[in-house]
Design a protein around this nucleic acid. Structure first.
Lengths: 331, 331
DNA sequence: AGCCGATCTGGGAGCGCTCCCAGGTGTGGC
DNA sequence: GCCACACCTGGGAGCGCTCCCAGATCGGCT
């Protein structure tokens, strides 16, 4: 920078001000500095800058999930992409972190602690995940996507209304005259699927229907959904609707139903959760699904984090984003 | 760090050496420092460290591709994941960068130039992509995954043997007695699909078969594959085999063939490319596919980059990784 | 004319670390 | 017993930047 300043005929300080477009720089000086920087191919050293400013301009996006799940989970892919965009829009660089094994945990903590990033957006759906608790001890601003495992208060969370979404789905089925409404639930060690199952159960009870024995748990995969559907069908050949806790599992359920000769939606109506843009409308028949927008979630998370960066004492916020029902041919 | 040193009763220098486990520190001193660091909850400031060492410990993985493609491209997802792992294994942090629009280009260049990372692994499959050329001007070590657009020499590349893979596929079909072997090619503005198409053509000619009019180009998507297959079937109802340039397109082709009443492999044999672990074996029938391992590619790229970090003058290397044919029921 | 405040500039200090160098201590060989 | 050479330690310098402060310049107002 010294060189640039000399080349432009000004002092280091003035060059710095021009480069960071601070106030109190004459237009002439600013232009000379900018021209010099261009001619000399200069770009400021970020390490030096963040050493004194104590901020890096980078934000971590932490995905704490088993490895295999990330590969074919389209929702996570959307989160990465949206995270990148939303952060870029506020001039921040995304640093992706996959935290899976226990060994990753300490690495992740060390990284977040090391001053590489100014804050973190954390997705840790599993209730037993030790990461959220470990993060509490750090002085780095964190916003969680979905409920933080084992922590109820004092953290910033942006979640979707999972229970409300399930209610929408089941009410829709009840209104269509369905009486034997089963569900393929997601893993009950995560809060989102727990809430979805609860919503299904409550809504059935409200409608005077009996949920007993109409639940089958699966692992959010295609084959898991297919197997769960088989089990349900074996126990209750007369079921006339099913609420599936994710699109991917619904694809599996669809296959099973098809193989069992059930017409959809005539014999069995299907409603799922996620409304994944590439999956849900592409099925045969297109899936009715509870719509949640990853971009919207990330946007809210970034917004909260930016405020947190301004004011560390921002009082903890639990944002619950509304969901809607995208009705298609499967119901 | 000063505090840690004081607490441990040693000097700043000794503390630094202990923390970086340099040579020439007594075991006693090292332990005292480590204990002090633990007790004080100290973690070194990375900005200060990289200011003097001139390295950050971070490596960028740049994906230069249209946004929509990343979401459902399982190969890219595997690349991200493998990149994270392989880099973690050599003690480096991955910084993911999506570079799509032209506006992203300058942002990407600025970022890579800013000293945030020590090197970059770049995937830029499109021939018209301006990124590779822009990167040439930077003094940052770069290794390309797949051919770099518009650059033939002077860069480090780790690619798969696309043409050889296509040859394997077609030779397999010829050996099985197929005579009318069509192809669903990928976008011809990328080198991988170009090479695959060339391999198909050459192998047909070598076998004394006529490739004329048996090509249909598609965009690597499921629906693109389905449409291309329809077009081929319309022109050549008598085709008895098809080489599809990606698994995803093959899934589409399978649907079209099924809808047209063709039995697979009896009427039409299908061979695809990628051998995606979740997709290819899960199809009905399971797909014969040319196997390429993203992990292997990333591994080679990381290895080359690490050498490049040691020795900037490493002579440019073009590594072509071999592929194999995973034979399954579709052929 | 004189003064005051707004605008602009340059130098100094220091962010937290690593590296170099000078010096101290111990150990083995002659 | 003394030197040479390992091994270990502490202080100083400096990485490239931003921020603070003191001072300079300039216009506008009394």
């Amino acid at each position: 920078m010294e060189d640039v300043a000399a080349f432009a005929g000004v002092s280091r300080s003035t060059a710095s001000r021009a480069l960071n477009d601070d106030a109190y720089v004459s237009a002439a000086a600013r232009e000379k500095v900018l021209a010099a920087a261009r001619d000399l191919g200069y770009s400021p050293n970020q390490a030096a800058r963040s050493l004194v400013t104590r901020r890096t301009g980078a934000i971590a996006v932490v995905l704490s999930e088993p490895e295999d799940r990330l590969l074919d989970d389209p929702y996570r892919a959307a989160v990465m992409r949206a995270g990148y965009r939303e952060l870029a829009d506020v001039g921040r660089q995304m640093v992706l972190i996959f935290s899976d094994t226990r060994e990753d945990l300490s690495r992740t903590v060390r990284f977040l602690e090391g001053g590489h990033v100014d804050g973190a957006l954390v997705f840790a759906p599993h209730r037993a995940d030790p990461l959220p608790k470990a993060l509490r001890l750090l002085r780095i601003p964190v916003v969680f996507g979905g409920q933080a495992a084992g922590i109820r208060r004092g953290v910033h969370v942006v979640d979707f209304d999972n229970e409300g979404g399930a209610r929408l789905a089941v009410e829709h089925l009840v209104a269509a005259g369905r009486r034997r409404i089963a569900t393929v639930a997601g893993p009950q060690d995560q809060s989102a699927p727990i809430d979805r199952l609860a919503g299904w159960r409550k809504t059935l009870l409200n409608a005077g229907l009996d949920p007993a024995d109409l639940v089958e748990e699966a692992d959010f995969t295609l084959s898991g959904g297919a197997n769960a559907m088989s089990a349900l069908l074996a126990r209750h050949p007369d079921l006339d609707a099913v609420f599936v806790a994710s699109d991917m599992m619904a694809v599996g359920a669809l296959r099973t139903l098809d193989a069992a000769g059930r017409r959809i939606p005539e014999d069995v109506a299907v409603v799922s959760f996620d409304d994944n843009a590439t999956l849900a409308p592409a099925m045969d028949p297109p899936l009715t699904s509870v719509h949640q927008d990853p971009r919207e979630q990330i946007h809210a998370m970034v917004e909260t984090l930016m405020q947190l960066l301004q004011d560390q004492n921002l009082k903890p916020r639990q944002q619950i984003l509304p969901v809607s029902l995208a009705v298609r041919a499967s119901s």
